[in-house]
Amino acid sequence: MDLLIYLATKAVIFIIFLIALNSLMLGKMNLWAIGNIVYFSLGSFITGFVSNNWGINDNRLYLLFLIVPVAVSIVSLIFFYASRVFKQDFFLFFSLFFIELNFVANKMVAGSSGYSHIIRPSGIQSDLSLLVFSVILLIICIVWINNFDKSRVNKLHSVMRDSEILAFSWGININKSQIPLFIASAILSGLMGVMFAFCTYGADPKLFTTNNMIILFALLILGGIDSIQGAVVAGLIFVFFTYSLESALSSTFQIHAPKITQIVFGILLIVIPFIMPKGLFGKRNFQ
């Protein structure tokens, strides 16, 4: 039962992270924001740093839900302006560089094994309470995204995504319109990093790499672009299917099991766009 609660909490955290990625970055702005893992990692490592070095605990740990958004907003602004300069493919290269930089920085600050023994704040110290808290966050997130989809702001983003010339000819300032969405996505990712650190009691640099991000993107493509259902399916598969697959393979392939899992997801990334261009619940084709 404990394992199920732990996996369910992890799944909810990844679902929110994937909503931030799928419904905001990819869905609204058409940005393959592989760098979102940096915000997630930043959230985890700030939690680890604060918990391990400053020794604060109990209610004061809730301050992380303020500190992390501020830190992540600053980093995401740098990323945003990079996305204006380095469009599409170059943005991807820039993101990869940023992930590597983040990996090195994390190892330098926290050591190669990262942080462990992270304390949870009072109120969400038990696994069940953390799961309930995560589910509440997920519900808030889904209500907001649904509301966003009905709003005029969403229609403007459709114009920007479809044709920058058209958007410009209507006097839409693309940069100004996209910044809040970009930062919102980053903040959600950062907060999920905090939740992940609370959930696993640690922050390991090896978890926040390009490989894991590629797996998540493969699953998002399977779930479908710009859909909450797609993010839910992707999050559930990422946690439960990966766990089951690695458990099943570990007896035969031992330490190679995670690598084989990655290969399975890599094949998925290549095959899905051909057989299901919209994924399971996608609003539009994978481009």
Binding site: N147, S151, R152, V153, P180
Partner: peptide, 12 residues
């Protein structure tokens, strides 16, 4: 109506 904060308001 194009303000980002409006996306948080219900019934828009």
């Amino acid at each position: 109506n194009e303000n980002f904060l409006n996306t948080f308001a219900l019934g828009m």
